[in-house]
């Protein structure tokens, strides 16, 4: 479904991700592990085509569509969705309005159907109390993560890229985020890549394969259970200078 082969990503002309190869078949959830500043977020932003991030080398395909010549708008339209680690504060933009807009682009239905869908998503992630607040206005860490997952549920992309859904949040929020992501897969998202440097969220959801990124390169990959065990027991340092597993 999503294929990245020997991908390099530049930010402002500087190569941050030097080599990354990831292949996620339909129906699978993969994990991308690595310490801070190893290039995980840059890789996700490069794939979605975030302004300033450019795939400089390698192959990036979504279900047979070459992503590289596409703008972010076109990549999102092709089916890439992203949940960011932090969401901006958008003055005057109520969360309800944003979710309704995203849902209406997917459903194209009546305003009543759209409103009901937004209510359903908000209930699922316990964010009803945030709907009439500005996006990002005073949200706690956990609320921000849940809102980001809510935008994915509203959008229902073919492939979801999820950046650090478990950093700086309480256990209950991690559990709800995990449930939300599982629900997203049930509702039609075909593949998912979750970035995590603690692996915390991995305890609450299924996954099949994991990759470790160090210094802008994927240096190790394998079945997720095995990779997680190795990382949790030995940390990342033993992989420095290592090769793909």
């Amino acid at each position: 479904m999503l294929l990245l082969r020997d991908v390099a990503v530049e930010v402002g002309g500087r190569v941050v991700v030097r080599r990354a190869s990831i292949e996620i078949p339909r129906g699978e959830i993969h994990l991308l592990l690595g310490p801070n500043a190893s290039g995980k977020t840059t890789l996700l932003r490069g794939v979605v085509g975030y302004p300033g991030y450019r795939i400089a080398r390698g192959e990036a395909m979504l279900g047979g569509v070459d992503l590289r010549p596409l703008t972010m708008e076109e990549r999102v339209a092709a089916g890439i969705g992203i949940a960011f680690q932090w969401l901006p504060r958008l003055r005057g933009v109520r969360l309800r309005r944003l979710l309704e807009k995203i849902v209406s682009k997917r459903l194209g239905g009546s305003s009543r159907e759209v409103e009901e869908e937004v209510r359903r998503i908000a209930r699922l992630l316990s964010i009803e109390h945030l709907l009439d607040r500005d996006v990002g206005a005073g949200f706690s860490g956990g609320e921000g993560k849940r809102v980001e997952v809510a935008t994915l549920l509203a959008q229902r992309p073919r492939v979801a890229l999820v950046d650090e859904p478990d950093s700086g949040v309480d256990v209950d929020s991690v559990f709800m985020v995990a449930q939300g992501l599982e629900e997203l897969m049930r509702e039609g998202t075909e593949a998912m890549l979750i970035v995590t440097h603690t692996g915390f969220i991995a305890r609450s959801m299924r996954h099949s394969r994991a990759y470790v990124m160090l210094g802008g390169e994927i240096v190790y990959s394998g079945p997720s259970g095995e990779v997680l065990r190795a990382v949790l027991e030995k940390g990342f340092s033993w992989l420095r200078g290592g090769s793909d597993g």
Binding site: Y50, V76, A77, G81, F84, L87, G92, L98, K101
Partner: peptide, 24 residues
């Protein structure tokens, strides 16, 4: 603007939503 485009809005829709937020 980039955040809203990443959520599926066109650039034009993103700008309209932010201007609408400004005058709210």
């Amino acid at each position: 603007i980039a955040y809203l485009v990443s959520k599926g809005l066109s650039r034009r829709e993103a700008i309209a939503m932010l201007v609408r937020g400004f005058v709210e």
